[in-house]
Amino acid sequence: MSAAFIECLDVGKVYDGRTGSVEALRGVSLACAEGEFVCLLGLSGCGKSTLLQMIGGLEAPSSGQIVVAGRELSGPSPATAIVFQDHGLFPWMTVAQNVAFNMKARGVGAKERRARVAEMLALTGLSGFATRYPHELSGGMRQRVGIARALTTKPRALLMDEPFGALDAQTRARLQHELLEIWAAQRTTVLFVTHSIDEAVFLADRILVFTPRPGQLAAEVTVDLPRPRTPRSPGFAALAARLRGLLGTEEGSE
């Protein structure tokens, strides 16, 4: 791998709220190579979403700098796309319109939009649902729509904020598999926020462990287990136990 595709240099974030200021992140430095699948693992409130939003260009860091695709960020980069935890689908748009939105925002023509929407719906297994509204879909399908929308602009990095957090175990497992397939096929970089140790071990090339108050990068763990992994893969349990120790939760966080 050449130079890092996403790089954070001593990034800090302080929120000034009505109840005083909150230091959400302090001194985070990380680098993420192109094509890598990196999980940001941490308990609630340790600043994972904050970091992802800053990398997505939605929030400016209070200190330090963030470089994406060789440029210091000053707003959302066209090289990234975000998948939100609460899916962020427009309830008044059909599935097809939702998926087309990011392209519309970029000024992609209607004809190309239609073709690409069809392609992405097929990729995410949503072909029969183009004219449905989000409220007519299951939670898992909504996340697929969010992923399809993010992929339409061929982002070089996909920023995912606990996309499967609200799903039941089976749906979650299925979407994790599908995400790995998509990742393998599209060769995008993935930055994936989760508070589930198993999810991180299942998905990641590398896991960045965050601890709270203030949010800090506590450890970096490379996962060199062969894919496909299952919780019964050799080494899986040992790694999960190590991560539990790093998070400081003996009972786990599922």
Binding site: G57, T80, A81, I82, D86
Partner: peptide, 10 residues
């Protein structure tokens, strides 16, 4: 979130 989606999409 919806406004963030829009901002992220430019």
């Amino acid at each position: 979130t919806l406004l963030k989606v829009a901002a992220a999409a430019g």
